[in-house]
Write a protein that binds this DNA or RNA. Structure first.
Length: 683
DNA sequence: GAGCACTGC
């Protein structure tokens, strides 16, 4: 195999060299390619990363693992795969992969690189995300993909043999699949010495990745098989302002700061980070009210909310260009930290908090709590002010409290339900998941809880081995383990068609448009006394029949069009799996008893009984629970329910409930409830 | 009795 050697000229490189020029001129000229007079190749050479091109290629050649530290905007994501391609790493049918934690990033970066290489997207340069494979198995040389997709490929080809280089981008975010891949690649690299791994991280974690991959234990650097390189960024400087004294109400302080900036600072839009919808809607309202007291001659101010629960149309408003006489204030959740980038932001107001979801293995409950952000998050938020010109960040906390923040937030692996991780690792032949080499091992309680759940679902046998076929099928199924079990068992109740719809609707969030008075009214039209699952089934069926799958109909009924479209895609995908598993695709008509019994066959562990005061207790542990106000069963008197999940916010709330007959628990989950039969009423 | 950070397969 012919590799490019340091010092030699790589294929396709000679032309670049001749036109190489010193950088340092006005950056703005190539920030916007449409007004640039430079060719694409010249623009590429003007990126700060170009200066490190040879060094990066040298390290990748010499070391099996290279850790690249580089700020957003340095060009690593678009350039490094191209450098590797130019240097011959894609010859002989091999592919360079670059993973992203988010779908949009994978598609937009692939689009950009295809333009730079002047090729058709989906041919030499492609992408692969759920529901969308825009790549060609024979032609694609550079493949951008979500980390979850690359992980799924390991289920088919455990050594990922078609890839010569695998670049894990944004590794500092420590998403669940990034962490699994980081662990798996350590195993794969032992079996494939020719494979090269690039871990790209924006921050302080770099050293930890290096330690994880470097197999050299002696004190002689020349024996290292991992290396680190830092790349220069291309951000504009951001002035940091702290509070002198801590504040007690950061929402009020944020509003005051917005007006301070508005009345004292030059033009430029403002981005405010708060933690959730309530705070955001409150701030938007207050800013609107107080703006009326501004002098008529002053610059106008337009507050805009931004969070995931809004419809696509509502979200698009933040991208509308601002009229000359107006300053835009975007008030956002953490969604604006990495997922959505808004151009033109010059001022950032950072409250210093974020809502974090964490899984408690003792109770099996998830909590959603407001916690301090990490230093890395604070840095990322500040960076949002330095994309177009020099910016300012106003941190609504003291400098001392900043230094008390954790360096990085807790990796998802440390705070998630690990049932799917356990299933998938076992499907890869990694039986002892407790001893799998994770960069940061998850707490043992999380692992044990996952093993217990999988055992109760009969996905694991008495020896902790994956059962055949159920365990293997659940490992492959891109759906929550309990829902997967329900889908596979649906043939027993002749209701696969109904369960496919329910599973798809449960897998998406925000079916009903939030914070609209129409919603409650609209929801009542679809609501049934059996509960949320069958209500969701009704909504979906109405959408595809009466609603003719149209956005207009959704709008009229307070439903989120994009969410329902996504539910259709998921349903389609899940249907393919059921066909492959030979589950007969029957419909039970409108037999809600069959549907609810089928739900019990998977959700038996999540059962609760109502108390005289209207609260609930779990049957398993007698833990107090409440009906979430978004449920159609909220304020209704019912006796026994099963639920999809519990999320603790102000109280532990059950979400997505269905009314059941307790006799079904004994009938369908005797292995789980046998020892507690006395707790069930006699029938 | 009154409320839902964000991704991903």
């Amino acid at each position: 195999m012919a590799f490019w050697k340091p010092g030699a000229t790589a294929p396709g490189v000679s032309l670049d060299r001749e036109t190489e020029k010193e950088t340092g001129e006005n950056f703005i000229t190539f920030v916007n390619p449409s007004v640039s007079t430079f060719s694409i190749q010249q623009q590429r050479q003007r990126l700060p990363i170009f200066k490190s091109r040879d060094h990066v290629l040298y390290l990748v050649e010499k070391y099996q693992t290279t850790i690249i530290v580089g700020q957003t905007g340095c060009g690593k994501t678009t350039q490094i795969p191209q450098y590797l391609h130019e240097a011959g790493w894609t010859s002989g049918g091999r592919v360079v992969a670059c993973t992203q934690p988010r779908r949009v990033a994978a598609t937009t970066v692939a689009q950009r690189v295809a333009e730079e290489m002047n090729v058709q997207l989906g041919e030499e340069v492609g992408y692969s995300i759920r529901f969308e494979d825009c790549s060609d198995p024979h032609k694609t040389r550079i493949k951008y993909m979500t980390d979850g997709m690359l992980f799924r490929e390991t289920l088919i080809d455990p050594l990922l043999s078609q890839y010569s280089v695998i670049m894990i981008d944004e590794a500092h975010e420590r998403s669940l699949y990034t962490d699994i891949l980081v662990g798996l690649l350590k195993k794969i690299k032992k079996k494939r010495p020719e494979l090269r791994i690039i871990i790209s991280s924006a921050t302080l974690d770099a050293e930890a990745f290096y330690e994880f991959y470097n197999t050299n234990t002696i004190n002689d650097k020349s024996k290292d098989d991992a290396s680190i390189i830092s790349l220069e960024g291309r951000m504009f400087p951001v002035d940091i302002h702290y509070l002198e004294d801590p504040c007690s109400d950061y929402v009020e302080k944020a509003i005051q700061t917005v007006f301070d900036i508005h009345t004292k600072q030059p033009v430029g839009d403002i981005l405010v980070f708060l933690t959730g919808r309530d705070e955001i809607e409150h701030a938007v309202q207050e800013i609107t009210d107080r703006a009326t007291t501004l002098p008529r001659s002053a610059l106008k101010i337009t507050p805009l909310p931004l969070y995931a629960g809004l419809t696509a149309e509502q979200q698009m408003l933040v991208f509308e260009p601002t009229p000359r006489s107006t300053r835009k204030v975007i008030i956002a959740t953490t969604i604006a930290e990495a997922s959505i980038t808004i151009e033109g932001i010059v001022y950032v107001v950072d409250c210093g908090f974020v809502k974090i979801r964490a899984y408690n293995p003792k109770t099996g409950m998830e909590s959603l709590t407001v916690t301090s952000i990490s230093k890395a998050s604070a840095q990322q938020r500040a960076g949002r002010a330095g994309r177009v010109r020099q910016g300012k960040v106003y941190r609504l906390y003291t400098e001392d409290s900043f230094y008390e923040f954790q360096d990085a937030s807790v990796p998802e692996m440390q705070r998630s339900n690990l049932a799917p991780v356990v299933l998938q690792l076992k499907a890869l032949g990694i039986d002892n998941v407790l001893r799998f080499d994770f960069m940061t091992s998850p707490p043992a309680e999380l692992m044990i809880r996952a093993l217990e759940l999988l055992y109760s679902l009969k996905a694991l046998d008495d020896y902790g081995r994956l059962t055949v076929p159920l365990g293997m099928q659940l490992a492959e199924f891109p759906v929550d383990s309990m829902l997967g079990k329900i889908l596979i068992d649906s043939y027993k109740f002749n209701c696969a068609e109904e369960m496919l719809t329910i599973a798809a609707m449960i897998s998406v969030q925000n079916v009903f448009v939030l914070s609209s008075s129409k919603v409650d009214e609209s929801k009542r039209k679809f609501a049934v006394e059996e509960g949320d699952h069958i209500t969701l089934l009704n909504v979906y069926n109405a959408f595809v029949t009466r609603g003719k799958k149209s956005g207009r109909w959704c709008h009229e009924h307070g439903l989120n069009f994009r969410t329902l479209q996504r539910a259709m895609s998921i349903r389609q995908q899940l249907t393919k799996y059921l066909k492959r598993f030979d589950v007969p695709l029957e419909s039970c008509g409108n037999d809600t008893v069959k549907i609810r019994k089928c739900l019990v066959s998977g959700y038996f562990a999540n059962a609760a009984k109502m108390m005289p005061d209207g609260s609930f207790r779990t049957i398993r542990d007698n833990v107090e629970l409440h009906v979430h106000p978004s449920s159609v069963l909220f304020t209704r008197a019912v006796e026994w329910v099963i639920f999809h999940e519990v999320v603790e916010t102000t109280k532990p709330f059950m979400r997505d409930l269905t009314v059941i007959d307790p006799a079904w628990l004994a009938e369908l989950a005797p292995h789980f409830y046998e020892f507690k039969k006395s707790a069930l009423p006699k029938h």
